[in-house]
Simulated assay, not measured.
Amino acid sequence: MATETRGRMLEAAVQALQWRGVAGMSFTELLRDSGAARGAIYHHFPGGKAQLVAEAATRNGQDIRAHLAALPAGSPHAVVEAFLTFVRPVIEAATTGSGCAVAAVTVDPESDTLREVAATAFGSWIEQLSERLAAAGLPPREADGLAAMLITLLEGAHVLCRAAGTLEPFEQTARTALALTQSRYPSA
């Protein structure tokens, strides 16, 4: 039961980070959205908001990495296509105000801990995508570069699509990424 409550609180914190960021996250809404009792916050997160935010971003980062690990690795183009398909609904949510929970923790200039949480998560995503691309036949250096480009595409698309209120910046970049990988790695 305690683990279930803690898990619901972390999930509610991820949602709050996506929609309101660290500064906009309130304990009242978090408790309401998780169904937890008022005393649950400091019971499960004795470090308070800082601990809760760090653990939520870490968990979200691990969840994304797990999804990336499951991408098919038939060819580099297939990996890119599967990645873009996976992130499209997330970017679509950005058009109505959502964002990346991991990126949200980078906004606090006073928190090196949160910046490190984000750097670790982003690094793990790049590493995982690079592994999938290498499994699809790319040399490690090319796999690393393409993986970094895809994560940069994802994070940039969050911002541009949120600002524009449309999916078009993502769609344009996705088309270009697919065309480039198809021409560079037609049957690798």
Rank of each mutant, 00 (worst) to 15 (best):
L84M: 12
Y42P: 01
E29R: 12
A174R: 03
A134M: 06
P169Q: 11
E168Y: 04
Q128A: 14
Q51D: 07
L129Q: 06
A177P: 01
I41C: 04
T113W: 02
F86T: 09
R59I: 00
V90C: 04
L160M: 10
E81L: 09
V79D: 03
L146P: 00
K49E: 14
A56V: 05
F122V: 07
R20E: 08
R65T: 15
T96C: 05
A103K: 10
S34D: 13
A118Y: 03
A135Q: 15
S34F: 09
R38N: 02
E127T: 15
A12R: 01
C161K: 00
A78D: 15
L114V: 02
P46R: 02
I126M: 10
A157L: 06
G39W: 05
F45Y: 01
G165Q: 10
G156T: 13
T120M: 09
G39K: 01
L160E: 14
C161D: 00
A174L: 01
H158W: 13
L31R: 07
V107S: 05
W19Q: 13
A118C: 12
A135Y: 11
V87L: 14
Q128I: 01
L150C: 08
A50D: 13
A56T: 11
I126E: 14
R32P: 07
A157H: 03
H67V: 10
Y42W: 11
W19R: 13
P76S: 13
R132P: 00
R88F: 04
A164N: 04
R88P: 01
G99Y: 03
A78L: 08
S183E: 12
P72D: 14
T95N: 12
V107R: 14
G165D: 11
R8I: 00
R132E: 01
L153R: 00
M25P: 04
K49L: 11
L129K: 01
Q51C: 03
R175P: 00
M9L: 15
L167E: 06
R141S: 15
F27K: 01
S75Y: 02
T28D: 14
H43W: 03
G99T: 10
F27D: 07
Y42I: 05
E4G: 05
E171W: 02
T5K: 03
Q18N: 08
S183H: 10
E55S: 05
R132I: 06
P76D: 12
A78E: 14
L10T: 10
S124Q: 13
A143S: 11
Q51V: 03
Q128K: 07
R20M: 04
A188V: 15
L180D: 03
L114N: 01
C100D: 11
A36K: 00
D63S: 13
V107L: 08
A69Y: 02
G35E: 12
A136S: 12
E168D: 14
T3C: 05
W125D: 00
E116P: 00
V105W: 07
G74P: 03
G145N: 06
I41M: 13
L52C: 06
R162K: 14
A121G: 04
Q15K: 08
G97A: 07
R38L: 02
A23C: 06
T58K: 08
W125P: 00
T166N: 10
A177G: 04
F170H: 02
V105I: 15
D144G: 06
L178F: 09
A148S: 15
V14I: 15
E110Y: 08
L129H: 01
A118F: 05
P169S: 13
L68P: 10
G99W: 01
S130F: 05
L114S: 03
H44R: 05
H44N: 15
Q62D: 15
R132Y: 07
H67T: 09
